[in-house]
Nucleic acid binder design. Sequence first.
DNA 1: CTAAAGTACAACCAAATGGTTGTACATACG
DNA 2: CGTATGTACAACCATTTGGTTGTACTTTAG
Lengths: 115, 115
Amino acid sequence: MVVHTISDEQVDLLFHALADATRRDIVRRAIDGEHSVSELATGYAMSFAAVQKHVAVLERAGLVTKTRRGRERLVRTDIATINHASRLLDQFEELWRVRANTMSEILAQDPGEVT
Amino acid sequence: MVVHTISDEQVDLLFHALADATRRDIVRRAIDGEHSVSELATGYAMSFAAVQKHVAVLERAGLVTKTRRGRERLVRTDIATINHASRLLDQFEELWRVRANTMSEILAQDPGEVT
DNA sequence: CTAAAGTACAACCAAATGGTTGTACATACG
DNA sequence: CGTATGTACAACCATTTGGTTGTACTTTAG
């Protein structure tokens, strides 16, 4: 199995992009694709340019891609990146599991062995 | 099953806290507990106060807790918060799965039904 | 008691963030 | 053709962020 390593800077971009409610909402809406930037912009209490910037942040993080259709750009979520973020967090839980195992091994030791 | 809902602001804090390599490293090191703030500070190319601030960001996000031991504060990772973040991302994948199912239903439709 | 260690917190600073408006350009529509 | 739509991007601004140093307080060690 090929482990797709990612740089710290990419992880920074990824979690930073997710640290904003508007951007998370854009990701949700773009999961079913077919949303132009101006379509996305309607519904947020901010300018078109502001939404454009949010999409750019998501794009740099690899969370969405933009494809051209005539004069509009369709925004689509890259679910693989979401999956990658989720697995990064799973690694922390794996560390925790290892530690928990070590603890139960310690607790399972014969009392006489405890120093 | 009780679903522990969380505010957008808390999710912002959570992902923002994870969007920094130093902070992610602190979380990793604090998984096995028993690390005072000054212990954590050794090894980073920054001042003690800077590390203190990083720990404060993690604490506000609920990613670590601090307990007192004499004059030091022991930092410990709250793995439940990591787990919570991971499940938040799973929700996006769930949306994706629903969409994928809908798509395969569409593709499975009798050609005559396609409008 | 005194000194050192560990922490907390304020003040300060440069850079990044998240918003705005304005301008320019490409494409679709009548 | 000319006009409206969709986008890109620059310039600007207030606030936040991530770092610094300095000071004060508590607790341990000698």
